[in-house]
Computed example of a mutant assay.
Amino acid sequence: MRSVELFAGAGGLAMGMGRAGFDHAAVVEWNHDACETFRFNQRNHTEGVEQWPLYEGDARDFDYGTVGGDVMVVSGGPPCQPFSLGGKHRGHMDERDMFPQAVRAVRELQPKAFIFENVKGLLRQSFTSYFEYIHLQLSHPDLTRRKDETWEKHRARLERYHTSNQASASYNVVYRLLNAANHGVPQRRERVFLVGFRSDLGIKWSFPEVTHGEDSLLRDQWVTGEYWDRHRLAKRARPVMSPRLATRIARLREEPVGIIQPWATVRDAISDLPDPEKYPRNKIPNHVFNPGARSYPGHTGSPLDEPAKTLKAGDHGVPGGENMLLRPDGSIRYFTVREAARLQTFPDDFVFQGSWSETMRQLGNAVPVRLAEVVSASVANTLRAAGHARAAKRVRGG
């Protein structure tokens, strides 16, 4: 199944798409350091990256006529800074808003489906009108904005068309805010996913069910103790249960065991890596200690035995609190690039190029590979099933 990946960034969504069975016909990214990372891994034959046809440049300049053949899915993460809680909050007023280019790709390639993701800030109340505008454009990508037409007037025209011709939408679009921790990622990271299927295919689809949960983690830690046993932590090395947590654990002891798996934690993700501060000469790629971490109110680092807080890109370098490890003794340090990559579920053989701050910025903007795979695999399986059904129908008709 051929796909086109826009705004590839650190490559999380593209890698997840590849794992789900999609074959990228083009991978588009403008950031030079990110492209150098892809090239480095291609030269080193990193699985899943080696065959990416990379285009380094502005998505606004990309010619989709060069892709050739049918494209099953268009995917990508339009730059999130306009809507990020850590950005300037300019939204549609920001020149970095690349959603119009995502719509252009859908219009010109007419894929069977698309998968776009972005930060949770896209759903903030202040951006409600523009988010509805994005939704309408993706539903009717051929109803383009006229010259000198404001986005508000274009939205109104789309609304009129949509309400009077609901059956004529080119794509049926749904969206949901997903927490990566609920799908096995060792990080509390929320991303908005917009998924659309071409309406003529008659496809029925919904987002994947949650597979991991906090209650299951707490049960493993404080009811059965399996979590501590798995990490070979003696009782004296385990954290102390707070009175508030004790009340919740008492309730869990009375409830039946469910099928939801435990949330993955920071310890699950990085415990097998050497401490970069104690062992600075370790030979693990991207596992280099960086000094200068400091804690301040609201920015206290991620505890070892919980999913990490959301890694962030920062507007001017790496923000301290979000990208720090909080050790059991209360001390803190920055996550290394390799540790951050683990928290974003990148494989260890995927080596990042560029400065520490630039690489952490890419990781802070990325979608976790595992979350991308979960969503795209669901889309892939649905498209395969629909294709088999159409083929069977043709055979019966013949």
Rank of each mutant, 00 (worst) to 15 (best):
S3R: 07
L6A: 09
G12I: 01
A14S: 13
M15W: 12
G16H: 06
R19C: 02
A20Y: 05
A25C: 12
A26M: 08
N31Q: 11
T37M: 08
R43F: 06
E47G: 04
P53Y: 11
E56A: 10
E56Q: 15
D58W: 08
Y64W: 15
G69H: 08
D70E: 14
M72S: 14
V74R: 07
G76L: 06
G76P: 01
G77F: 01
P78W: 11
P79F: 10
P82A: 07
F83I: 02
L85Q: 09
G86T: 13
G87W: 03
G91S: 09
H92Q: 11
H92G: 05
M93G: 06
M93S: 11
E95M: 08
R96E: 08
F99W: 15
R107E: 12
E108Q: 13
K112R: 13
A113Y: 04
I115T: 02
K120P: 00
L123S: 05
R124D: 15
F127H: 15
Y130I: 09
Y133N: 06
I134G: 02
I134Y: 10
H135Y: 13
L138C: 03
P141G: 08
D142K: 13
E149K: 10
T150M: 10
W151L: 12
W151A: 11
E152N: 07
A156Y: 07
E159N: 03
S164A: 13
S164I: 01
N165W: 01
Y171W: 03
V174G: 05
N179S: 14
A180W: 03
H183E: 00
H183G: 00
H183W: 12
Q187M: 07
V195N: 05
S199P: 01
S206I: 00
G213R: 03
G213E: 03
E214I: 06
L217R: 09
V223W: 12
Y227K: 04
D229R: 14
A234H: 05
R244N: 08
A246K: 13
T247D: 10
I259D: 15
Q261N: 09
P262L: 04
A264D: 00
D272R: 09
L273C: 02
E277P: 00
Y279L: 09
P280C: 09
P280H: 10
R281E: 15
R281K: 11
K283Y: 00
I284K: 08
I284F: 07
P285K: 09
H287G: 05
G292S: 09
G292K: 07
A293W: 10
S295C: 11
S295W: 01
Y296G: 06
T300P: 00
G301M: 08
S302G: 03
D305A: 03
E306W: 03
A308Y: 02
K312V: 10
A313V: 02
A313D: 01
V318H: 04
P319G: 06
G320L: 07
G321L: 09
G321P: 01
M324G: 05
L326Q: 10
R327Q: 12
G330V: 11
S331G: 11
I332P: 00
T336L: 05
T336I: 02
A340E: 04
R342W: 05
F346R: 08
D349C: 07
F352K: 03
W356S: 01
E358K: 15
R361S: 14
G364Y: 03
N365K: 04
A366W: 04
P368I: 05
S376A: 15
A377E: 11
A377D: 11
T382I: 07
L383E: 08
A385I: 00
G387E: 15
R390A: 15
K393R: 14
K393T: 10
R394W: 07
G398R: 13
